[in-house]
């Protein structure tokens, strides 16, 4: 099935710079419909009031972290099937394991490049 390039992608990060980087890189990959949030709780509000097709979230945020957001998403009947990519500087094994156990779709470690971002998007959504 072809990937809907018009889907809304929610990017979540407490660093505005990173939001901007992600937005620009996603635009270069032809994802033009992008929503932003700066922590987990704000992201949940956006998710519950918009038709979001995928979440790309940082881990280390306050007050609600990325892993907490992931658990909330997976515990919500309406959101639990959303593709969820964690993109974080937290690179310890226990982080990856915890994210996987919480139901993460894929995991990108910072610093990352556009090629890695694309390959993870393809692995989650399919070729585009």
């Amino acid at each position: 099935m072809a990937v809907d390039m018009n889907m809304s992608v929610l990017i979540v990060d407490d660093y505005k710079t990173m939001l901007r980087i992600l937005r620009n890189l996603l635009k270069q990959l032809n994802f033009n419909n992008i929503e932003e949030a700066t922590d987990g709780s704000m992201a949940l509000d956006v998710l519950r009031s918009n038709n979001i097709g995928m979440v790309i979230s940082d881990w280390n945020m306050e007050p609600m972290t990325g892993i907490q957001l992931l658990r909330e998403v997976r515990g919500d009947d309406k959101l639990k099937h959303l593709p969820f990519i964690m993109i974080t500087a937290e690179s310890k094994s226990e982080n990856v394991i915890a994210a996987k156990e919480a139901g993460v779709s894929n995991y990108i470690v910072k610093p990352f490049n556009a090629e890695t971002l694309k390959s993870k998007l393809v692995s989650v959504l399919g070729e585009f």
Binding site: I67, A89, E90, S91, K92, S93, N95, V96, I108, V109
Partner: peptide
């Protein structure tokens, strides 16, 4: 705990590479 998992960026020599993350996943 969740708090234990907030370590921030690892030093370059200790950080896991994307390939290692992929293998773990």
């Amino acid at each position: 705990t969740d708090e234990d998992l907030l370590n921030g960026p690892q030093s370059t020599d200790k950080a896991k590479s994307q390939a290692e993350i992929d293998a773990l996943l």
